[in-house]
Amino acid sequence: MTTSTSDLTPQDRFLAIRDEIRREALALGFDACGFASAADAWPNGEWLRQFVAEGLHGAMGWMEETLERRSHPTAMWTDAKSAVVLGVNYGPDIDPLTQLEHRDRAAISVYAQGDDYHDVVKKRLKQLAGWMHRRWGNDVKVFVDTAPLMEKPLAQRAGLGWQGKHTNLVSRQFGSWLFLGSVLTTLDLPPDEAEFDRCGSCRACLDICPTGAFPAPHRLDARRCISYLTIELSGPIPDEFRPMLGNRIYGCDDCLAACPWNKFASLSAEAKFHARETLKTPPLAELAVLDDPSFRALFSKSPIKRIGRDRFVRNVLYAIGNSGDAALMTVVEPLRSDPDETVRDAADWAAARLASAQVS
């Protein structure tokens, strides 16, 4: 049931509108909803400029290209007055770190074990934005992280959580497991109280990083991050990082999984963002033999499909090289003649590692 706002004061009217939006968002499957001003000044644009100026973004040239549009929400849309910031919980059923114990199987980042969250979240955002426009006639635009909007600092302003020392959003209710999306609107809605940093002296997310990708709290060197190396980086991964990958073939959840706030995550099972059973620690031997059609079929509607078969098999071969399982040499040898140069390089490296492990 919607609330009549015709007899309310302007302030109470916008508070009532905000409550309606929150109820609708939760009904559509969002687990968190907060409100922030889209017009207030913030320092995050300068932080991003420094990040790019220091080259910490690595080969992600799109960050430099979209720098000005990321500098402030109104840089994306000058008429925006408010941001409705939404979160979807994707907390895993088990500790992702246990995946690392099975060296002959693949560890895939939790967010990529289901359908592409960009598509799922964007569909819900469009439903919410369309409902808002029909209800109040306001202009709206939707954003998920494929668009150049800095959603994590916006989410902190909206009270959904705070940016932890691992630079990701941390929620008191959902830990480090929230997908984010936003609806910018011309409605001038009262903002929620911003969340503050509750990390204290904890360093769990920093200390667990296999590659030392955090030069300091709240600072990430993407060039050392396993998520960057396995997803964003084309060509061979530098030799120094290959042993550190372990069996991680797509992304890395270590810093997220180490967060103590995860123990407070709670949500009804039916609302969870479900993983596919086939992507929970699949055998490396099965993944290594994928050709392009079988790769596309297996990862239909998955974010993994974006990196392509060659980069994916490259990652699988590094994991095989780290497995110590000499039996996997049978799938490595044919790939030493693969048409793709990077796959051949990874296969040669894996073969050498397996041979060395067998001797020792």
Rank of each mutant, 00 (worst) to 15 (best):
L125V: 02
A80N: 03
C202Y: 04
L149N: 00
R223L: 06
L178Q: 00
P96L: 03
E341A: 15
G137E: 05
R309A: 09
S234M: 13
E195W: 00
N168M: 11
R172Y: 08
T330M: 06
R311A: 14
F14L: 14
F295D: 10
L86F: 08
R105L: 01
A285E: 11
E195I: 01
V183Q: 05
G29V: 08
L26H: 12
L100T: 01
G200D: 13
L354V: 07
S268F: 02
F299C: 06
P210C: 11
I21Y: 01
T185Q: 05
A155W: 08
M63T: 06
S171K: 03
G159A: 04
L160M: 01
W77Q: 06
A194V: 02
E277I: 12
L335W: 03
V85Q: 02
P260V: 06
T78G: 11
D239M: 12
S71F: 09
S171W: 08
P303L: 10
S82V: 13
I226N: 02
Q113M: 10
G34K: 02
L317G: 05
P43F: 00
D115V: 09
W77F: 05
H274T: 15
D145L: 08
A288G: 00
Q50V: 06
L8Q: 01
P283V: 02
R124F: 05
C225F: 06
A39Q: 14
V289T: 14
S323N: 12
A204T: 13
F241S: 09
E277C: 06
W62M: 07
E24Q: 14
H218D: 12
Q358C: 12
D192M: 05
Y250K: 15
D104F: 00
P260N: 05
L26T: 09
Q50G: 10
D145R: 05
K123P: 00
W42H: 15
A75C: 10
G321I: 03
A222R: 02
S360R: 15
M60K: 12
A216D: 12
D253N: 01
I237S: 03
A53I: 06
P217S: 10
I17V: 07
L284V: 03
Q156A: 06
K122P: 04
E270Q: 12
V316D: 10
I320M: 09
E46M: 09
D188S: 13
D95N: 14
T186C: 12
A346H: 10
S201N: 09
Q127P: 04
A112Y: 07
R296S: 13
I231N: 08
T3P: 05
A271K: 12
I94L: 15
I231W: 13
F241A: 10
F30W: 04
L97N: 10
Q99W: 12
W42Y: 08
M63S: 00
S4N: 15
P10S: 09
R198D: 15
G29M: 01
L48P: 09
P210D: 14
D292C: 08
D95W: 03
P334C: 03
C255N: 04
F196E: 07
R344V: 09
I320K: 07
N89D: 14
N247T: 08
V313Q: 00
M329Q: 11
T3Q: 13
D338M: 11
R242F: 10
F51C: 06
A83S: 13
R124Y: 05
